[in-house]
Design a binder for these strands. Structure first.
Length: 151
DNA sequence: CAGTGTTCAGGAT
DNA sequence: ATCCTGAACACTG
């Protein structure tokens, strides 16, 4: 059984996902991507539905190192919520820069919501174009505020 | 050893 | 109020 690679549009971008069963191995943003199916939950997420992606397995958060612990902490950040590098660092017991380092090497954005981790003073960084991070956050915020008059 | 998707404090404009 | 430095922290290749 081979790993499936497919893509789905998100705004002006195309999200390419390599996955198999309930495990996602790689997520990549680009202008174009191969035709093929992607993980159902990620597809619904990209279509603007509030879905819980914590059920998806990612090789990144399995391990013994600090990085894996950071990824697990990041995954606890819920849909439409944000946390700072410093908060994640304090949870795991490490330094903010280690969190940034881990985010920069995140193999599976969305599954591990690195876009919800922002700098204390601004939006923070993002290895693909920062526009994507802004769009993702804007979408989640819109969905959350859209559900029955809450904030 | 060097490079980060940080953070904090200080000082200048 | 905004912007710039410099320093210290933890982790990975």
């Amino acid at each position: 059984m081979a790993v499936i690679t497919g893509s789905h549009p998100f705004g002006l971008w195309v999200v390419t996902v390599s996955w198999q069963g309930d495990a996602v191995y790689r997520v990549h943003f680009g202008r174009t991507g191969p035709s093929g199916p992607i993980h159902p939950l990620i597809r619904r997420y990209l279509m603007g539905q509030e879905v819980d992606l914590t059920g998806i397995a990612s090789p990144a958060d399995e391990g013994d190192g600090k990085t894996a612990a950071i990824y697990r902490a990041v995954r606890k950040v819920g849909y439409g919520e944000v946390a700072t590098y410093g908060e994640i660092a304090e949870t795991v017991g490490t330094a903010p820069r280690a969190v940034g380092q881990a985010m920069a090497r995140n193999p599976t954005p969305l599954v591990i919501p690195c876009h919800r981790i922002v700098s204390k003073h601004g939006i923070g960084g993002f290895t693909p174009p920062i526009e994507i991070k802004k769009d993702l956050l804007a979408m989640e915020r819109a969905v959350c505020s859209g559900r029955k008059g809450r904030i």
